[in-house]
Nucleic acid binder design. Sequence first.
DNA 1: TTGAAAGCGCTACCAC
DNA 2: GTGGTAGCGCTTTCAA
Lengths: 354, 354
Amino acid sequence: MTVTLADVAARARVSPATVSRVLNGNYPVAATTRERVLRAVDDLDYVLNGPASSLAAATSDLVGILVNDIADPFFGIMAGAAQAEIGGSGITGRAGGEKLAVVCNTGGSPARELNYLTLLQRQRAAAVVLTGGALEDRHHQAAMAAKLTKLADAGTRIVFCGRPPLPDSEALVASLAFDNRGGARRLTEHLLHLGHRRIGYVAGPAERTTTRHRLEGHREALRDAGLSEGAEQFTVHGPYDRRSGFEATLELLRREPDVTAVVAANDTVALGAAAAVREQGLRIPEDISVAGFDDLPFSVDATPALTTVRLPLAEAGARAGRLAMGTETAPPGGVATIAAELMVRGSTAPPRRG
Amino acid sequence: MTVTLADVAARARVSPATVSRVLNGNYPVAATTRERVLRAVDDLDYVLNGPASSLAAATSDLVGILVNDIADPFFGIMAGAAQAEIGGSGITGRAGGEKLAVVCNTGGSPARELNYLTLLQRQRAAAVVLTGGALEDRHHQAAMAAKLTKLADAGTRIVFCGRPPLPDSEALVASLAFDNRGGARRLTEHLLHLGHRRIGYVAGPAERTTTRHRLEGHREALRDAGLSEGAEQFTVHGPYDRRSGFEATLELLRREPDVTAVVAANDTVALGAAAAVREQGLRIPEDISVAGFDDLPFSVDATPALTTVRLPLAEAGARAGRLAMGTETAPPGGVATIAAELMVRGSTAPPRRG
DNA sequence: TTGAAAGCGCTACCAC
DNA sequence: GTGGTAGCGCTTTCAA
């Protein structure tokens, strides 16, 4: 029924071995032979059997990209960039070599994160890219370290993207870190510089690395300005989504009615924050400042800070691809520090209220 | 080096066949035997070899979900819902049965769409879910039909989600359609009902099914209100993204300065449209109406129209899972018609300008 | 440069 | 209810 490599071999009047070599292109084959084989492939409309190939070669062309929230455009941009870079031209030749980059949505659930890793391990994935903040939970971290070690031992390359490497498995992974602390700090400094003194902070969920690092940067800036007193009052935690940004901001405005600026821990949260502020009848930036892309003219494409994030993300994809192909040149564990996700445009308006 | 099923069999003092049966759970095995096997699995930290399994069984547990734009939250919601439904509990037992649902971002490119299908075909994917509007291009449609036929012949289940089935391959797919025409019509009728007469329409790219159907619904509503004259002037096309929504809206306002309402062809476009309107110094809804979620209090979760979309989407995921497991009960080709994506809240403000 | 053949690890059929 | 075993389709030595 289905065409096999042997069929192709027969039609091209060569051995299966030769067909395999042509398809994988990693072995010298006479030009005329190659031609003949490729024609046979086309004629028969042959598609390589991935499982068989993976079984024999003990590795697959699957690359998993894990994200915390697939409905968050930030992860979409990351995943898309990585996928584009890994997948290459996007046009598969008649045969192998092409990687299958797929994104897996953990929804922020530790169980699902581990589950996907198991599934990818089962598939003998070529590489796994872990994006977004990690959970700061001893138990889960241990489980992750164990699982990742096993994956790495089995030949799967691991790439961390915007997530600090685990304590143990440093040597196992390539890592692309964001300067969350510095980004948050600069953002807050910017607002301070504009004259704001009562600055609310809509933080992410408490147990994530990104949440902590960004909050630390924010507090650093406040401390340096001598404003750390009662900072907790100005901070509200919640998930990294729009709804949470909305609700947290309402809560914040209720608790501290005369804040003049709000920092959101990421763009999606900022979207909700801006909506909440407007619903309160306040104007951005006249009545209040909100840092987020909601008040930018258009898509994140145009935000310089985010643009600087995008490039490294594509690079991360390329790196995952290269790692998967076993031609890694960068030192393992090397960390590229770049602008943080939340280093978005702060409103330029000075405070008016209070 | 790596633990195989034979190792597990040896340790449990049973045959490989028995281990396989326990792991796949689709065959009667004595309870005590099962226990022994599972313990051996745990002891040895065994993980099934997916490729080997897929090769022998001639099918894999991979399910591909194709989306047009992974950075668009709408697709994120769709993909997430489908993935959650397909993946089941999200917690894999020690062994098989679990599907690996992964999302593939075509970026709206026909070449990449076909490419992913080839890649999934190569993996002998259990199912493929195609989401979002299709390209209305004879050549590409033919290529898709051919490819999908091949996939279906090889045992891959095909699910269309928010995309009209292809002319030929009707019998091959399960399909979940959105009432794009009806949704757009109702949205426009709503605005007409509020008294709007000069309504701009920011449409999607010309060659997509969703674009055409929604535009048709919009025009129907206008025609019924006797307003179809010069409707082209009020329509601007562009990609389904925020930037495009922004630019198209500016163009629209330049061309027709006294529109009192703008309909955006999807939520992401609406986001850009709202931003453009604000940048022009106009107020929503006082100066102008914009249909989109940007002016909703918070995330799309809370939008009734979108909620009605979500449920069927989860159902589509479930269906894909079931299809993949070969226990489909619904008639193939059955179509569930539901509210359209763009049937979002229209502003309730009456027109004030002009 | 090409061919022959031995597996890769698992499933499923056929016995028992 | 369990075991034996013949492939699944490909890759990769080893020879020629």
